[in-house]
Amino acid sequence: MAEAEGESLESWLNKATNPLNRQEDWEYIIGFCDQINKELEGPQIAVRLLAHKIQSPQEWEAVQALTVLEACMKNCGQRFHNEVGKFRFLNELIKVVSPKYLGDRVSEKVKSKIIELLYSWTVALPDESKIKDAYYMLKRQGIVLSDPVIPAESTLIPSPPARPKNP
């Protein structure tokens, strides 16, 4: 794909979250993931760009950005998990669901997707302790009332870890 040569993270994400997209465009979503993996500071830059899109007043743009985020968590590995697992990024998600920040102006669809993602990461990435801190803070605040049900295909773990067998 020759046209992809000059693409930046920002241009991939703009295409992947374009409000004019009729449906989620996986060519651009995967293009963004691949670009993250190619760049030295890909994860750091990507989470900043994603946070901005997730806070879009346009619901469809925000929903697509969350799909991109989910795809990155599945495809961009530990480097990306580390960036998502910092309060710097988690706070941007918290702002969207909290009525003290943007929550009153954001659709239920966007807020429930964020809560689903946070919860699924607390299960799939138990070592990322800040994700748990953020999620349980939302529970304490009454913003999350009960743990969402996560569809099996949405779980983050690509394949189950090998379990040592008892001899």
């Binding site: 910092k86 309060f87 710097r88 706070n91 918290i94 909290s98 920040y101 800040k130 803070m137």
Partner: peptide, 15 residues
């Protein structure tokens, strides 16, 4: 060292 100071500056949003 940079990572340590980043860790110190990384706080949960006040609610």
């Amino acid at each position: 060292l940079g990572e340590e100071s980043e860790e110190r500056d990384d706080h949960l949003l006040p609610m």
